[in-house]
Design a binder for these strands. Sequence first.
DNA 1: ATCTGTGCAAAAACTTTGCAGGAGG
DNA 2: CCTCCTGCAAAGTTTTTGCACAGAT
Lengths: 155, 155
Amino acid sequence: VTASPPRRLPAPPDADAALERIRSHGGRVTPAKRGVIDLLYGDGTPRTAEEVAAALPGIDRSVVYRCLGQLEELGIAHHVHLGHGRAVYRRAGGTDVPVACQGCGATSQLDLGDVEAFRSLVLDRTGIELDLVHFPLSGRCEACRAASAEGGDAG
Amino acid sequence: VTASPPRRLPAPPDADAALERIRSHGGRVTPAKRGVIDLLYGDGTPRTAEEVAAALPGIDRSVVYRCLGQLEELGIAHHVHLGHGRAVYRRAGGTDVPVACQGCGATSQLDLGDVEAFRSLVLDRTGIELDLVHFPLSGRCEACRAASAEGGDAG
DNA sequence: ATCTGTGCAAAAACTTTGCAGGAGG
DNA sequence: CCTCCTGCAAAGTTTTTGCACAGAT
């Protein structure tokens, strides 16, 4: 989980364009890649490498990792550090900012417009331009806050 | 790296108070814990578990992990997911919001007041109350942005 | 004296790599 | 036909766990 796009390639608009890009870069379109791309371009659900592997029975885990790595290099997918530990993968090109609940794992989306003012503020204060797509926001949803206020552990 | 404070204990103001808290909870004050606490309460530098271990020669890694875990449960330290992969540990009680550059690793601090409005906005939009201390903001500082605009790879 | 903490080693969880054979263009 | 990709297995990282002994109160 340490790849940066060689040059910021525009995200392919759909799965077919993604396959096209693979070919145009000398790659082969294989069932594994097709599977990963279909998964990531199907619904926008971010998935861990493990989840991607689980959704593609018959495809070896190592191949899933290699596919995800290649898709990142090609600007087709990218990973996001949602909450504790494991990164999740999404199709590239999303402009929405994910917000995760660290309690239950639910994610909401913020509009880019909503965060623009804040990005400006942070840039002004610190000189750092936030990358909220790659390093998203995390917190606790209402249900999880209520749970930990009462019982204690809402893990 | 999966501990949540049983109840939000107030952070000990200094290293001695931290040792005191260990004792008052039935724990023993040992060289390992003293070492970890001195490190975290010395300068505010966030450190990975590996860095803590490296700074305490003669203390086994597993012990460092166990100490960090216990210190988290006691509200003496906590971990922060700064940038890629590894979490870093800090003394508890900081109210500033770290902002990291994922390029060079430099961190700036934001005032809590600066983020309050944004936290309200996110709460309103998503129902999620951000925990920006535990899951800090990440982006790219000016130098790293300039570097990647020119050369391409700025690590 | 008692119970917690330590060190070691082994395991677990997650990811990467080497290699020989299979498949895509 | 050429080279990339796959599957398997093995190694690499980072963190956790079991256990017997040592150490703190």
